[in-house]
Write a protein that binds this DNA or RNA. Structure first.
Lengths: 215, 215
DNA sequence: TCGTTTCCTGACCGTATGGTCAGAGACAAG
DNA sequence: CTTGTCTCTGACCATACGGTCAGGAAACGA
């Protein structure tokens, strides 16, 4: 790499900034629109309006609607994978699962749109991220299931099927994002308060940890 | 109602049969297509092809795509309300919640498409069934929460927030329908067997019932 | 300043979609 | 057979959509 290339690629470069900033704005708008309307219901025009850019400009950064969608889905997937680290550092179920629930509940709270896009994608048969399910997610799941199994073997929790436990963790935490509208309606039309979010986390942790005989 | 009208409206009448049968076929096809593609991605042509009818015929029975969609959503909602009866006849959490989980898991297994359509609808802000959420579902939820509270007061289970418990029941059971594709992928690409479904039900019941101190 | 690359966008295009409609066909009642 | 009602459908229409493109504007390096 020569000096010229190094300079033109430096992260603070104006060119780079423009591209990065616009991609960020577009991805953010796209996440929202895909979450609200689904892939089929979303339109490039709607995303463009929400991003404050002409539609043709979107196609300059993302060749097709599907490319844009793919990026949105991968983004949320990576956020979730990060939350997995909660699991690793732990020495037992109370610590590990507790931290994992906290992390995933926080994601449901902070990134409800991304969660909905992911849910939608999987519900429709995962047309664009099937390979991720079969590789990354499969490996991740096998790894955590093994960890849970060792906890069981060590007598740190009751013998439960690790996979069904994982499904329950995913379902319960993501429910607060995917079905947030329903929860809000049942909460007299008001979003959960800080206090209520804490109660939700505590309830989930309490029931599950006690349910697996770890608390 | 005079004799003529009575005859022409009798349930076995040929005219009535044609209408009912065609509506049934259309609704069945629509449920599948809406589940697979979402409201925006579904097309009347696709539904027509799946139902084996010309597109114009669909518009004879259902004026608009939205009318058809509305009917599909209400159908699954009523199926779920029926499952609620499991709750009522019970005298305690083990019996009541156990039966409710069984009923909802069975629905996830038998009507995964309906479940997906419902999930999609709620995720997108419940544009067509918001009134149902605010009336029927709100009442139902309040009623069951009260039942759970009495069980707590009677010492039949630990003090947990009834609402978060209900959310967990909904989330966990519906997960097996809505994320069925993901579960199948993690099950080496094979659908859950009869045995595995039983294991799933048992795991869910075991963790939750124990988690609320009822088992 | 000049040349080059990147960025931007109004106007445009082919296609697919939801929906309409006139009229044909099926059936029952008198 | 006649009349009236319900069922059916090919052909059609206006619109909206994803995507393209030519060419202008802006940002650089030299």
């Amino acid at each position: 790499m020569d000096a010229t290339a190094r300079i033109s690629r430096r992260s603070g470069g104006k060119r780079t900034d423009i591209r990065r900033e616009n991609e960020r704005v577009i991805l953010q708008a796209a996440e929202k629109v895909f979450a609200e309307a689904g892939f089929g219901g979303a339109t490039m025009q709607l995303i463009a309006d929400m991003a404050g850019l002409p539609k043709a400009n979107l196609h300059y950064y993302f060749a097709t609607k599907e490319d844009l969608y793919r990026r949105v889905v991968r983004n949320i997937f990576e956020i979730w994978l990060d939350a997995a680290s909660s699991f690793d550092a732990a020495t037992g179920p109370v610590e590990g699962i507790g931290a994992y629930v906290d992390a995933k509940m926080e994601i449901s709270r902070r990134h409800p749109d991304g969660s909905k896009v992911w849910a939608s994608e999987v519900m429709h048969g995962a047309p664009v991220i099937q390979d991720y399910l079969e590789t990354t997610l499969r490996d991740w799941t096998a790894g955590r299931a093994a960890v849970i199994q060792t906890w069981i073997d060590q007598g740190k929790m009751a013998p439960v099927d690790p996979r069904h436990l994982l499904y329950m963790l995913w379902a319960t935490t993501q429910h607060y994002a995917d079905f947030g509208h329903q929860i809000e309606t049942l909460n007299d039309g008001r979003p959960l308060t800080e206090r209520q979010w804490r109660a939700a986390k505590d309830s989930v942790k309490q029931i599950i940890l006690r349910g697996i005989g770890a608390a």
